[in-house]
């Protein structure tokens, strides 16, 4: 039976953010901005969605009087990401099978 892909992760930018965060301990907003190539506004909206779902923690502080936003994946986020990858693998297996038959 094919597992449903998590709609929250099945979006380019949100998946980019989660893939970046899954391998590191924490990352600044500007790092995510550089690596994803997204616009500030769009990234901000998607980060809020991930935060509301409990997939990431967002910490706002100050450094040299400038606001500093740091993001960190939560255990719930890691689980969701792993589940998404599993579902994806299953999908690709099915896809391969249907092509070879």
């Amino acid at each position: 039976m094919f597992k449903e892909l998590d709609p929250l992760l099945h979006s380019q930018l949100r998946l980019q953010v989660m893939s970046l965060l899954v391998g590191v301990e924490s990352a600044e907003f500007t790092y995510l901005l550089e690596e994803t190539g997204a616009t500030r506004g769009n990234l901000s909206v998607q980060i809020t969605k991930l935060k509301d779902a409990g997939y990431i923690d967002v910490n706002k502080s100050f450094r040299n009087n400038y606001p500093l936003t740091t993001c960190k994946i939560t255990p719930k986020g890691v689980k969701a990401f792993e589940k998404y990858v599993e579902a994806l693998q299953e999908y690709l297996k099915l896809d391969k099978k249907s092509r070879s038959s």
Partner: peptide, 9 residues
Amino acid sequence: VITEMIENS
């Protein structure tokens, strides 16, 4: 996307 981003980070 996953492969690219993991490669970057």
